[in-house]
């Protein structure tokens, strides 16, 4: 980790009419750091994730991102072209439902290769071997390279979605309940894989989850949200082992079984 953050979030709020989506969120994220945002459904964690990833415009506040040239840019002041370029090169977004992040009628190889082609790669052989390499890194047999994700199991689809996001070597990945909807045994394997990749690649990640076990396994730090506010924020082990807020204590005692 360096001493310059990758992402600086200041006073971020999102209102839906008079209802609070999330309010006054501020934090910094360092390169290689994994931050978990936990809370019940309706706590504002998904709203926050969508604001951070520029999929939603916040009502107030700023999010600054350190670009590859070392300069910070306010994400909400980027042009749409810059924003979309950032999203398909330096960022990844892993959806809870893999069908939202994959092209279901296009082969696994093309799913992984799309980002490469989008940034100008024009050598079929290279694209294919990179795709093949990534499939094996996410434990998908390379003989499945020409199959469509429709023929894949839920776990394989999720791994394919991860490969598709990581192929351009992003520095920051957003994950929305990445293990939601998977069987428990499949979840464990996926979490192992994600942890390995994040470590190997030195990725920074923001993971939204309602599952404290996921936060425990993947994240260095975590934020607990309730009713749109961040009520507790600290190192993951500290928050889970020594929760300070009564609500966090309740969460930990009622859910955590690890």
């Amino acid at each position: 980790m360096t001493d310059t953050p990758l992402l600086k979030v200041g006073g971020l709020s999102k209102f839906y009419g008079s209802r609070i989506g999330c309010k006054d969120v501020s934090f910094e994220l360092w390169p290689g750091e994994v931050l978990a945002i936990v809370g019940e459904s309706g706590s504002g964690k998904t709203t926050l994730l969508n604001c951070l990833s520029t999929r939603l415009m916040p009502t107030t506040g700023s999010v600054e991102y350190r670009m590859r040239d070392g300069n910070f840019r306010d994400l909400y002041h980027l042009s749409e072209a810059e924003r979309r370029f950032l999203m398909r090169t330096d960022w990844g977004f892993v959806h809870q439902n893999p069908a939202d992040g994959l092209r279901m009628t296009v082969s696994a190889g093309a799913n992984v290769g799309e980002r490469l082609m989008a940034v100008g790669d024009r050598h079929y052989g290279n694209i294919r071997s990179t795709a093949s390499d990534w499939l094996s890194r996410v434990e998908i047999g390379t003989d499945r390279i020409d199959d469509q994700p429709r023929a894949f199991s839920g776990g394989m689809r999720q791994r394919l979605q991860i490969a598709r996001n990581l192929v351009t070597g992003p520095r920051l990945v957003f994950m929305d309940e990445p293990t939601g909807g998977l069987d428990v045994s499949v979840q464990a394997r996926l979490l192992d894989l994600v942890r390995g990749l994040v470590n190997d690649l030195g990725l920074a990640a923001i993971v939204v989850t309602h599952d404290l076990a996921v936060a425990r396994l993947l994240s260095h730090r975590m934020m607990v949200m309730k009713d749109g506010y961040v009520i507790e924020h600290g190192l993951t082990d500290r928050v889970l082992d020594d929760p300070r807020e009564p609500y966090t204590q309740l969460l930990v005692s009622s859910i955590l079984q690890v």
Binding site: R88, G109, E114, R115, M117, A118, V119, I145
Partner: peptide, 22 residues
């Protein structure tokens, strides 16, 4: 129209890629 405006033509090559793969 947005894809043209932003010169996002990766998808076009995805189609050609699929052709060759198949």
């Amino acid at each position: 129209r947005k894809m043209h405006a932003l010169e996002e033509y990766g998808l076009m090559h995805v189609k050609l890629y699929e052709d060759i793969a198949r």
